[in-house]
């Protein structure tokens, strides 16, 4: 089977008058219709990688890659119009904070319906019906009522469900979720993950889940990519994370406080300069 997404040697560089920042340096991975997690600390380049996939890196940022194949289509050569069609319809992204992603002066339902109508020339009534179905799918009770609320009237967890509904309504093949749950309470977080999990399974989608929470990613995804300083340190199956080879991965796991560990000193992650530039 050809990969849903195939990234080879991706580089993202931000060049300003003062300094040059290489946010992503030679990232390569391929994925099918599976749940893949990208884990890293702040500044590891995990979010920038996904923005680059969607063509959302703005100047002064520049993106280069040997290839960026999505379902056999080379994304680097897609013109802006084609890219817009792919983005939204075939690849969707859920951001960390729904407050900034939703239009504050439009009702929640109208926004979702609009997202649907852009991609699937449908009548208003049909879009409304579809939207309410979608709101039900993300397990919102009383969807008709929620349809007519404004973004500021909903809670964080609800807002994030609405975002997921909006992103999934065009029926994309790939969903990118950038820390979609880190601002939420742990139980709400798990419920949202379950919703995404079910939808991915039912629709046979690919999911890229970006997070700093190694535990969560390990229990949720099929495979894990661990990034540090713009590079991939290690890729492993989630089930075999405890056998991870790379000292950075091991360090990250060890420095997490556990309910079972006795109090005392936590092992501190010792950063090896070789992780930055050395061979992997």
């Amino acid at each position: 089977m050809t990969a849903l997404l195939d990234v080879e040697n991706l580089h993202v560089t931000f060049r300003t008058r003062k300094e040059t920042v290489e946010a992503v340096r030679g990232v390569s991975f391929a994925m099918g219709r599976e749940k893949i997690g990208i884990v890293g600390e702040s500044g590891s380049g995990k979010s920038v990688t996904c923005r680059a996939l969607l063509g959302l890196v703005r100047p002064p940022g520049t993106v280069t890659a040997d290839h960026l194949l999505f379902d056999g289509v080379e994304l680097r050569q897609a013109d802006p119009r084609h890219m817009r069609a792919i983005r939204g319809r075939r690849i969707s992204m859920v951001m960390q904070d729904p407050k900034y992603s939703l239009n504050p002066v439009m009702t929640v339902g109208d926004q979702i319906a609009e997202a649907y109508r852009i991609h699937a020339r449908a009548s208003q009534a049909e879009a409304r019906r579809k939207t309410i179905e979608m709101l039900e799918a993300v397990r919102i009770r009383r969807p008709e009522q929620v349809y007519d609320t404004y973004p500021h009237e909903v809670s964080g967890g609800m807002g994030q469900r609405i975002m997921v509904a909006m992103m999934l309504i065009p029926g994309p093949d790939l969903l990118i979720a950038d820390e979609p749950t880190s601002a939420l309470d742990v139980t709400v977080q798990l419920q949202l993950l379950a919703i995404m999990d079910d939808l991915v399974q039912q629709r046979g989608m690919g999911l890229i889940f970006i997070s700093h929470d190694l535990n969560l990613v390990a229990s949720f995804c099929d495979r894990i990519i661990i990034m540090y300083a713009g590079r991939i340190m290690e890729t492993c199956n989630a089930a075999e994370l405890h056998n991870a080879q790379h000292p950075y991965t091991q360090g990250l796991m060890n420095c997490l406080p556990q309910i079972d560990t006795p109090p005392g000193k936590l092992p501190v992650l010792q950063r090896d300069p070789a992780w930055q530039d050395g061979s992997l």
Binding site: G157, D185, T187, L190, L193, N215, L216, S219
Partner: peptide, 19 residues
């Protein structure tokens, strides 16, 4: 919940008036 994601466990989450 703090032990990680588990599809079965999520299904059993009770609503202590969240959301």
């Amino acid at each position: 919940a703090s032990l990680g994601y588990d599809r079965q466990a999520v299904a059993m989450l009770e609503e202590f008036d969240m959301d």
